[in-house]
């Protein structure tokens, strides 16, 4: 075993492959470990090279083979330093995922709606309010993703091996089994809202309230539209009631009922948008009254816009909910 650590063919003074390997590995090891680790690593590499040379290999080839076997120096350094080679490990991944889903599902919808409503109140048109709300919502999603992920990645690296984020899982944490059967409560809830909507539309025409305290009660919705839009909305509401009852009798949401639900929601939104864009949603007499008591500019328009925004969001949420229930019902169907 007389082979030197410096293989032949290398200019004296220039770093050998071993030098480069040791340099690459130690770069990623905490400084206080280096002084002890470097001679050991060098000795191990030299010993392995010598053994190969004794078996008849050329010095250069032996060194290459030994370093190749040791593998990526950064991976070796990570094993030495007990550093994880993953962004987020099993210890924190589930907590990370739950927190992310929780925040995304609560904060994003709330902020999106609040931004939409406030910018409509600020006098923005419905289109630009929706656009702004969606843009802010999108930015928020990116930010939540980035910062929560960053926090988890840092935590993975600074936490002691025994540290845990959440208390131990117990049987008490088990979720309820979600049944896909439609409850009577869900059906009644839907029917009550349909009845309220229909009543308000008819009632504000037959028995108008004096909303502006002007002494002259007038309908809020445009009476001229009784030629088509209001009867159409009432027909849509009646259709929806029929669908709710049909779903209840069927017992579960199906893809067909989710599709019908989506179509119905789209119809509401289309009618409303048509009225809004032509500026015919509200009763002109009511708008005049409103302008007498409040800031004449835009107040009527913003009432209409807020109402439309709320309807739009409700329609989207209801449609998504329908598909979700249909998918769940499909999966759990016996």
């Amino acid at each position: 075993m007389t082979a030197t650590t410096k293989p032949t063919g290398t200019k004296p003074g220039s770093p050998t492959l071993t030098d480069r390997y040791v340099y690459a590995a130690l770069k990623h090891v905490p400084a206080q470990q280096r002084d002890d680790l470097e001679p050991e690593l060098r000795a191990s590499i030299a010993d392995a090279t010598d053994a190969r040379v004794t078996n008849g290999e050329a010095v250069d080839a032996a060194e290459v083979a030994v370093l190749q076997d040791l593998g990526d120096p950064e991976a070796l350094a990570a094993t030495y330093a007990d550093r994880p080679l993953h962004l987020i490990g099993p210890r924190f991944f589930l907590d990370y995922k739950r927190i992310l889903i929780l925040l995304l599902s609560i904060v994003v919808p709330i902020v999106t709606v609040v931004i939409g409503v406030t910018s409509t109140l600020g006098g923005a048109s419905l289109g630009s309010a929706i656009l702004e709300a969606l843009m802010v919502g999108g930015q928020l999603i990116v930010h939540l993703f980035f910062w929560i992920t960053l926090a988890a990645v840092v935590l993975e690296r600074v936490a002691k091996p025994s540290d845990k984020l959440e208390t131990e899982w117990t049987v008490g944490d088990l979720p309820e089994v979600v049944t896909n059967r439609i409850s009577i409560g869900e059906t009644l809830w839907s029917l009550v809202w349909i009845a309220i909507a229909a009543s308000v539309i008819v009632w504000q025409q037959v028995q108008p309230f004096d909303l502006t305290r002007s002494g002259q009660p007038v309908p809020v919705l445009n009476p001229d539209l009784w030629t088509w839009a209001w009867p159409l909305i009432l027909v849509l509401l009646a259709t929806e009631a029929a669908l709710v009852i049909r779903r209840h009798l069927a017992g579960i949401w199906t893809t067909a009922s989710a599709a019908l639900n989506a179509g119905l929601n789209a119809a509401y939104v289309i009618v409303l948008m048509a009225l809004l864009t032509t500026g015919t949603l509200l009763n002109p007499a009511f708008v005049t009254q409103l302008e007498n008591v409040t800031d004449p500019l835009g107040s009527a328009l913003s009432i209409a816009a807020i109402a439309s925004f709320v309807v739009l969001v409700a329609a989207i949420l209801d449609t998504v909910e329908g598909w979700r229930k249909a998918r769940r019902g499909h999966r759990a169907a016996p």
């Binding site: 050991e40 690593l41 191990s44 010993d47 076997d69 040791l70 070796l76 094993t79």
Partner: peptide, 24 residues
């Protein structure tokens, strides 16, 4: 014993392990 010799001894006893596993 030292790193490489231990690797050798383990191997001759039938306990095969990689250098990059054993040293750390």
């Amino acid at each position: 014993d030292y790193g490489y010799a231990l690797l050798d001894r383990l191997a001759s006893m039938g306990v095969h392990t990689e250098a990059n596993t054993l040293y750390p």
